[in-house]
């Protein structure tokens, strides 16, 4: 059981993480590099200053880009192992096979848990924006993720009213409590870059997680078939 989850998570994570890494390099990285020009003070915003919205960017930085794709694969392996663990619990309880298309729905649910739900109150940050203390944001991020996972599980696998209500409360609670916020705004990056970065990060995350979910279902099924034959 353990090795089945690990092996299928490894395959799904490497493949899904590679696709995510390439998509991030294509769509998210240019916005991040643009923002770093403001973070480092090469470009300055505010007041009467105007800058080109299309500056020259150092688009290809081999070591940095390879490391980014590598870490994208590592993080997606972690995602895949968690997702496949949840799929396995469901399989044990219901004794059903999760198809590729159902896997996509599982992936989108995973995306909501680790990416979309925390982003409702703690949007993906571009370098060069003001933010609250790092540790308190990380704690809030983990709590929100756990609450959202429990909430989505309750909503997905119950038809009674009470679990549905509890599920909704769990998802909303971290946002009602509130995420850590900066005490003042001092970030040098223009708002246009921050907004584009957040929507690109969330959009690419959705696509990548949908792919990861489908792949996880396929590899879990393959590993299960191999183990039982």
């Amino acid at each position: 059981m353990f090795s089945r989850i690990l092996v299928s998570g490894l395959f799904a994570g490497v493949l899904g993480g590679f696709i995510a890494g390439v998509l991030q390099w294509l769509f998210v990285q240019p916005v991040l590099l643009h923002s770093e020009l403001y973070e480092t003070g090469i470009l300055k915003h505010f007041g009467a200053l105007t800058n080109s919205a299309q500056p020259d960017l150092d688009r290809i930085q081999p070591i940095r880009d390879i490391l980014s794709i590598l870490f994208s694969m590592i993080i997606y392996i972690g995602y895949a192992i968690l997702l496949i663990s949840a799929m396995t619990i469901h399989k044990l309880k219901s004794n059903t096979i999760i198809s590729f298309h159902q896997g996509i729905i599982w992936g989108i649910s995973g995306y909501i848990i680790v990416h979309f739900a925390p982003a409702i109150s703690l949007p993906p940050e571009v370098p060069g924006v003001a933010a609250a203390d790092l540790q308190s944001r990380q704690i809030w991020w983990f709590i929100t993720t756990f609450f959202s996972a429990a909430g989505i599980w309750l909503i997905a696998f119950n038809s009674k009213k009470l679990p549905l209500v509890i599920g909704c409360i769990l998802i909303l609670a971290p946002h009602i409590f509130g995420a850590p916020e900066p005490s003042s705004f001092a970030g040098p990056a223009p708002t246009e870059i921050g907004a584009l970065f957040a929507s690109r990060a969330l959009g690419i995350g959705l696509i990548s997680w949908a792919v990861l979910g489908g792949l996880s279902a396929i590899f879990l099924h393959k590993e299960t078939m191999r183990a039982t034959n």
Binding site: G21, Q24, V28, Q29, L32, R64, L67, S68, L70, F71, S72, I74, I75, V114, H115, P118, A119, L122, P123, P124, E125, V126, P127, A131, L134, R137, Q138, W141, F197, A201, L202, I204, G205
Partner: peptide, 15 residues
């Protein structure tokens, strides 16, 4: 430093 860009893209609190 190695995971910096991915942490931003995945929406993890980074720095």
């Amino acid at each position: 430093n190695a995971a910096h860009d991915v942490r931003h893209a995945t929406g993890f609190p980074c720095h």
